[in-house]
């Protein structure tokens, strides 16, 4: 039972990477980002005290809120050319499956070097891989910020097992917020030039 409970957040992290990678519309992206930080919190909870782990959740949600605040209301559920077409969704789904398999296969190799629990390693590696994939497939500001936040979430899951410093947790939270603010600033700038 314990093992299943430990697997749930890792599976949740995998599913949210799929939603983010499919890039359906703004609403889904923001929901997926919020769930991603729930998964990060849940996973980090196994190695950090609740109070410290909650920093990840609160920061992640604040980052999501900052990004969401930069989207004009009329665009929130819009599916236009910036988002994936049906063919692209199928392609991205196949890529996601391949990445899940690769992440699963990499877990024992990573365990040789880093003393991290397997569920944390799997979720961390998958988030990093999917974030990198997002970064490599776009030049759009908001996709780049989502990609960086995903990579950073994956790293934070793995790093939480290695470093339990409160100051490092605080600085990592600042970086997450900083990325969100930069994303919001760039999107506001672009929205301003669109109008």
């Amino acid at each position: 039972m314990d093992q299943i409970l430990q697997l749930i957040p890792a599976i949740m992290a995998a599913l949210v990477t799929l939603i983010l990678f499919l890039n359906l519309n703004w609403r889904w992206n923001i929901i997926a980002l919020s769930l991603q930080y729930v998964a990060v919190f849940w996973l980090v909870l196994s190695v950090w005290p609740t109070g410290l782990a909650a920093v990840k959740l609160v920061t992640g949600w604040m980052a999501g809120a900052v990004l969401a605040s930069s989207i004009p209301d009329e665009k929130i559920s819009e599916s236009n050319l910036f988002f994936s077409s049906k063919e692209e969704i199928r392609f991205r789904f196949v890529i996601w499956i391949i990445m899940v398999v690769i992440a699963w296969a990499l877990v024992p190799n990573v365990a040789d070097w880093l003393p991290i629990a397997k569920n944390l390693t799997f979720a961390g590696v998958l988030l990093i891989a999917m974030g990198m994939l997002q970064l490599s497939m776009t030049t759009q500001a908001y996709r780049i910020i989502f990609g960086l936040l995903t990579v950073f979430s994956g790293f934070e899951i793995m790093y939480a097992s290695l470093e339990k410093s409160v100051l490092v947790a605080g600085l990592l939270a600042l970086v997450t917020m900083g990325l969100a603010f930069i994303g919001a600033y760039i999107m506001n700038l672009q929205n301003g030039s669109d109008q």
């Binding site: 780049i144 960086l148 930069i182």
Partner: peptide, 30 residues
């Protein structure tokens, strides 16, 4: 992160270099 707003120019939509800078510098951190 603080340097990004200084690099952006309102009249220009070509931000590829700025994003590349942000991505590569951020990926160095882990």
């Amino acid at each position: 992160l603080i340097s990004i707003p200084t690099l952006l120019q309102k009249e220009s939509n070509d931000n590829v270099g700025i994003f590349r800078f942000l991505v590569i510098q951020t990926l160095a951190v882990p």
